[in-house]
């Protein structure tokens, strides 16, 4: 069933690819093939194999329970929050918050998860900035405050 849904999405996508590729506005072209042909070929192949998957899908072997779905969604939300906080709130705060929830999700007690995340975020901030000299955000929201 999931196979068919995915193949359906891919089928729509391959149609879009071919359509979009044919719309490319090519002002000049030095070679016979040009920028359109390759995407069109890919789109056609993708159509063929998507149809094949729709006709003959695999037995569905993934049966996530409600509990697992909750965990997965929590993980997804957590990572989106991390991405949103990363630049604004800065590495230390974002990593502390997200790291402690992650640690808690994997079965650690809240107190110890927070302690671990705090130590991890502070130590790795200094390791990454001082030792490896990476571009680690210190937080644009606090730029005016300090």
């Amino acid at each position: 069933m999931y196979d068919r849904i995915l193949a359906g999405i891919l089928l729509v996508l391959s149609g879009l690819i071919v359509w979009a590729a044919l719309q490319f506005d090519v002002p000049f072209q030095y070679e016979p093939l040009g920028p359109k042909a390759f995407p069109v070929i890919l789109g056609i192949l993708l159509t063929i194999f998507s149809v094949r998957l729709i006709i003959k899908p695999d037995e569905n072997s993934w049966h996530p329970t409600a509990d697992i779905m909750k965990k997965l969604l929590a993980g997804l939300v957590l990572m989106i929050v991390y991405a949103a906080l990363f630049e604004g709130a800065g590495f230390i705060l974002a990593t502390f918050l997200v790291g402690s929830v992650f640690s808690w999700l994997f079965g650690e007690t809240p107190k110890r998860a927070a302690l671990f995340a705090l130590i991890m975020s502070v130590i790795s901030y200094f390791l990454l900035t001082l030792l490896l000299q990476l571009n680690v955000p210190s937080g644009t929201w606090w730029a005016g405050v300090f």
Binding site: M79, E87, T95, F102, S103, F106, L134
Partner: peptide, 24 residues
Amino acid sequence: RQAYLVPVIAMLTFVGIYSIHGDS
């Protein structure tokens, strides 16, 4: 324990990707 491993993996991936272009 994975409770300690996963936060480190998440952190490394985010730091690594952010450091390429500095773009969220």
